[in-house]
Amino acid sequence: MIQFFDLWVQYAPLMLAGLATTAWICALAAMLGVVAGLALACLDSVAFAPLRWAVRAYIEIMRGLPILIFLFVLYYGGPSVGLRLNAETVGVFGLGFYAAAYFAEIFRSGFQSIPKGQIEAARMAGLSGPQIIRHVKLPQMLVLITPPMINQIIILVKESAVLSIITVAELTKNTTQFVNETYAVIQPYVAAAVLYWLLVEAVAQLGKFVERRVRF
């Protein structure tokens, strides 16, 4: 029984290092994803049709594609077209641009929730397009889109497990190392489950905090 816990103690540094990597990559990817997603949603609402089609195509492709394939092609295929990035960078950009498609959909549903009359009124009051987004649309839709955004970030955290395939030493890769070095099964995976769950709970709590802030 003592031995059972020994492994956890012995591998705590490795697992915590993996958790830290997962956390910072996901944080950067989420920020990138939100910004890029907002940009996509704004482009989606412009009048120029080909641009709208391009945005729709991007969103549908990203939503339909397993992220494993996206990351593999980006990391291992990138150098052949002159895109030589290290694994963490590909991780952040890959996850970020992937999540952007989902964030864009969330922003779009938020935009749609604003009554048309308000936007017309704002336009009449002389506000420009970007000003309308900044001062009229965003503040109102924050209440509506915060829960699905948090949900999406949680999904992002869990999907980041596939970064192990492009050699990023995040939680899942380090768990695999734990398994391979010790031939233990229970301890590594239970530890991984608990650590992921803690990270996700932290994001959920952050979400609740933000939800309270944006409500008033």
């Binding site: 593999f72 291992y76 295929g77 150098p79 050699t167 695999t176």
Partner: peptide, 18 residues
């Protein structure tokens, strides 16, 4: 020494020049 989940990724990275 770079480690991969599978040898096929290791070969792909060799071809990619990393």
């Amino acid at each position: 020494i770079q480690t991969y989940v599978d040898f096929n990724e290791a070969y792909a990275d060799l071809a990619a020049g990393r």
